[in-house]
């Protein structure tokens, strides 16, 4: 990873595991409002952040995500 960081075009890849009722809705609102943001995040919708098994974070990182955002 260290060498990747050094190269300029390397883009970290993020996964966001978010609550359906607030953050996911907020992400929809960002869309409706056409707020632009970088493309390197993938959102996974869960019914509540309380549902997030800690395993998900570990597995996401193991799978290659460079960061995990939990928001709700």
């Amino acid at each position: 990873m260290a060498e990747n960081v050094a190269t300029k075009d390397w883009q970290p890849k993020f996964v966001a595991i978010v609550c359906n009722w607030c953050t996911y809705a907020g992400a929809d609102l960002a869309g409706i409002s056409r707020i632009q943001y970088p493309t390197n995040v993938r959102i996974i919708r869960v019914p509540c952040t309380g549902r997030i098994n800690p395993f998900y974070l570990v597995k996401a990182l193991q799978t290659g995500a460079d960061g995990v955002l939990v928001s709700g």
């Binding site: 996974i44 019914p47 509540c48 549902r51 098994n53 395993f55 597995k59 996401a60």
Partner: peptide, 30 residues
């Protein structure tokens, strides 16, 4: 809401519609 599932170390409680296999499948397919 699935709070029970996150508190379960045994992964014995799971949530229909957002079950562990389903969410992990998404994670594995990032």
């Amino acid at each position: 809401c699935g709070v029970c599932t996150a508190s379960c170390r045994m992964n014995a409680v799971d949530l229909n519609g957002f079950n562990n296999e389903e969410v992990l499948a998404q994670i594995f397919n990032l």
